[in-house]
Simulated scan of single mutants.
Amino acid sequence: MSYYIKRILTTGLLLQCTTLVAQELDPRSYIDLPTGQNFFGALYVYTEGDIYTSPDIPVENLTLEIDGPAFAYAHTFELFGNSSKIDIVGGQACSYGEAVYLGEDVSRKYCGMTDTRVRLNYNFYGAKAKTMSEFVKHPKGVVVGASLQVSAPTGQYDDQYILNIGANRWFFKPEIGASMPFGAWELDLSISAKIFTDNNDLQGNKTFEQDPIYNVQSHLIYDFGPGHWISLNGNYFWGGDTFVDGEQTANKEANYRAGITYSKAINSQHSFKLLANKGITTNRGNDSVVYAIAWAYRWD
Rank of each mutant, 00 (worst) to 15 (best):
F272L: 05
W299H: 11
G227Q: 06
S231Y: 11
P27N: 06
I195D: 03
D211V: 09
G234Y: 05
Y256S: 13
T63I: 04
H270R: 01
I260H: 05
K128A: 14
F243W: 10
N121E: 13
A258N: 02
N233F: 11
N251K: 14
Q37K: 09
I266E: 06
Y46C: 08
V118N: 02
I5A: 13
A294Y: 02
G155F: 07
K278L: 11
S151M: 13
L148S: 01
Y30G: 00
Q160D: 15
G126L: 10
G145H: 05
Y73V: 08
L64S: 14
A127E: 06
A254Q: 11
F71G: 02
H138D: 14
L33G: 03
W229K: 06
T18Y: 08
W185D: 10
W238V: 08
M113I: 12
H75E: 05
A42I: 14
G155K: 04
T131R: 02
S192A: 15
Y256H: 13
Q269G: 01
I213F: 03
Y256K: 07
I51G: 15
R117A: 13
V21F: 06
E60D: 13
T131G: 11
Y125F: 15
R28S: 07
T197H: 03
V59T: 14
N205C: 02
Y30I: 08
P212H: 02
V136T: 12
G285R: 03
N123L: 11
I165L: 04
Q16H: 14
D223T: 01
Y4N: 11
V136Y: 08
S54Y: 10
E104I: 01
Y122R: 03
F208A: 06
R7M: 10
S54L: 04
A152P: 00
G239D: 01
Y222D: 04
D159C: 03
F208S: 06
R108Y: 06
K252Q: 13
Q210M: 15
T11I: 07
S190I: 01
A296P: 00
F208W: 10
L187Y: 08
E78W: 00
I293H: 00
A99Y: 08
I176S: 01
L148W: 07
S84V: 04
V45E: 13
D105W: 09
R119E: 15
G145T: 01
D159Y: 02
L13N: 09
H138N: 12
W170F: 15
Y101V: 06
N267M: 07
